[in-house]
Structure formats: C-alpha cells, structure tokens
Design a protein around this nucleic acid. Structure first.
Lengths: 174, 174
DNA sequence: CTTGGTGCAAACAATTTGCAAGCGC
DNA sequence: GCGCTTGCAAATTGTTTGCACCAAG
C-alpha cells in the first residue's frame, strides 16, 4: 500500500473509489455526493450529521439534511466513512480510508475523543466469532472515563453540565 | 461473595442496596422506583425503556414513561442496571448486579444478542488508561456479525427486513 | 425521456421537560 | 408543610419519509 503524498491526493483517490462504487452499485454520480465526501475528507476526526450539514451550508453548498444522511449511509457502506455511537443518541462519523483500524476513549466530562489501537481486539474478535459461530464483520470498542485535564478540573470542583461543544467555524480557508 | 439461593433473595438484596443508595444520595424512596427495580430483576436480559414501560402497564402498575426513564438513570448510576447502545438509536438495558462483567455479540440479521467474557478486555482498559492518562470507569465492546442460524438462512436467500421483535408477554407468572 | 436523487417540510421515534398535584421526609 | 417526584402531555432532538421537481444516464 502506498502512502498519500498529501491531502489533495488522498481526496482524489477517495473520490475515485466512491465513483467506482457508485457505478458498480448502480447509483448515480451526483455533485452533492462528491461534494459531501470531499468536505468530510477535508475535515478532521469526528462529527455528527448536523455538524456536517451546517458545514456544507457554511461552505455555501446547497444540500439538504436528507442528502447528507443518504450520502453518509452510502459512504458507510463503501467503507469510506465509519459511524459511531458514543453513548448519547447522536451518531458520530469519521473518515476511514487509509486509516488503520482503531478504537476510542471518550472523556465523560469534556467529550474529548482519543483514538487507540490494540491488537488484542482482533484476537478477541477471532476467538469469540469462532467460539459462538458468528461471522463477525465489525466491532465497536469504547472506553469511557475522565481525561487528564478534566481530572485536574474536578479536583477544583469544577462541574461541567454538558460537554464542551465544538462549533463549526464558518468560512475558514476559503 | 456468596451466591444467591434464588431469585426472590436476589431481588430483596438489590432492593436493599437501592434503598441505601437512595438514602445516601438524598433521593426519596418512592414505591414506583422499587417497583421498577423489582420488575427489571424479574425479567431476563435486554430490554428498552418502552418495553419496560409496557411491561409495567401490563402488570397494572401506574407509572409514566418519565418515571421509567428517571428510575433507569438512577439505577445505572447505582450500578444495578447497565445501559447499552447496540447501533440503532435505542438504548437497551439489563440488570447487572451479581453478574460478572461481560460484552456482547449482536447478530445484524435477527438482532440476537449473545454475551461473552474475555479477560483481555480488562487488560486493554488498564493499559490504555495508563498510556493516555484517562481514569477509565467503564467500557462498551460490541461485536457485530451474523449468527450461525442466520448464516444458513442467508444461504437460502432469505432476507429479513427487520430483526425479529421481542414482544412483552402480558401476564406471565402472576 | 426515464427514474433515481434532490430540497424542503412534515412525520416519526426516542427521550426530555414543564407543570400541577401528590406524598416522602 | 416543603419540595422532590410523579403522571401526563407537550416539547426537543436526531433521523426518516413524502412529494414535486430536476438532472444523470
């Protein structure tokens, strides 16, 4: 597998893969779908459907929520995007192409998400699949706890009602 | 740790624990809270909030959804009930007292949930917590795949639109 | 030109909240 | 009796659906 030289190159590659998948699946290649995929791969890390919708709006794309959800589902099926449920009923997504498989640690205090990777997870999947006669296709492992800085905050008795919200900055880098 | 002799004994024990937790937490001991806890411990395995609400109604309890949700949250905080998100936006609950920690394999075809236990999960938690300086409090590990019988069904081309639904049987064991 | 895809708004489903009444402390 | 808890219904939130129009193949 060759490493990407830069972001643009990765995006081009992903667009091509998506295009091929749409073709073989008998789906149409609409500009909205490619635009959404491109914006996802320009972003970093985790976001939810609404944040992506707002992001597209900020970038002056004319898309609807329905299309965002529809496209996200297509991308998940193509393995170009991963979908997560970190507790609360809010699906979180992240680009996944070219990334090695990883799992997540979530801070229950500030909502921060950190990734980690442990080969034992694969071992568990293999063993349990064999043992229970399941054909395992994917998994989700989330560790919940309190991150270092929040541990300090809590020593001072600071209580946060809700996780810090990440807002989409309108108009960066245009 | 002593094993429970029977279900009734376990229920009494759990009610006592809940009572104590309510007291130390400064919460009131309402009959609704105890009734909900008792019904949860009479049930087996996984259920969602609505199913529990219907169950209470079937048993002629006069409870509201709000109270069910409220009590479930208390019980989760007391570690008497565990809350899960198996993909779809529907929280699933299960009693947890007296059970050893376990994780889940979910059949994507019929919705069946099977439990398993692997000591490596604890090792991963410990290691990742130390490495990333998180104080890990709990985790969720779900493996998704297709169970043995569904693998057979699929060979015959049977496609199930929705997982088999489990309905609450009204009036068993009264 | 056919029909799948779109934007929009309304519908839905799970959960939360506001409020008046009730009961535990 | 004070005020947390309740039942009920209405509100919220995240996601899906219905429909008329548009544009990809």
């Amino acid at each position: 597998m060759s490493l990407q030289r830069n972001e643009q190159e990765l995006i081009q590659q992903v667009l091509k893969i998506f295009s091929a998948k749409l073709e073989t699946g008998g789906f149409r290649k609409t500009p909205e779908r490619f635009a959404i995929l491109e914006e996802i791969y320009k972003r970093t890390d985790h976001f939810d459907a609404e944040a992506l919708y707002i992001h597209m709006k900020n970038r002056s794309y004319r898309v609807s929520r329905a299309t965002v959800y529809n496209t996200l589902e297509l991308l998940v099926n193509c393995d170009l995007v991963k979908k997560h449920q970190f507790g609360r009923n809010l699906a979180q997504y992240e680009k996944s192409y070219g990334y090695k498989q990883h799992d997540h640690v979530i801070c229950a205090h500030c909502g921060k998400v950190v990734e980690f990777c442990d080969p034992r997870v694969q071992q568990i999947k293999d063993m349990v699949g064999e043992l229970l006669n399941f054909k395992i296709s994917h998994h989700s492992l989330n560790l919940y706890g309190v991150c270092g800085s929040c541990q300090k905050e809590m020593e001072f008795g600071i209580v946060r009602q809700l996780p810090k919200v990440e807002v989409d900055e309108p108009g960066w880098g245009d």
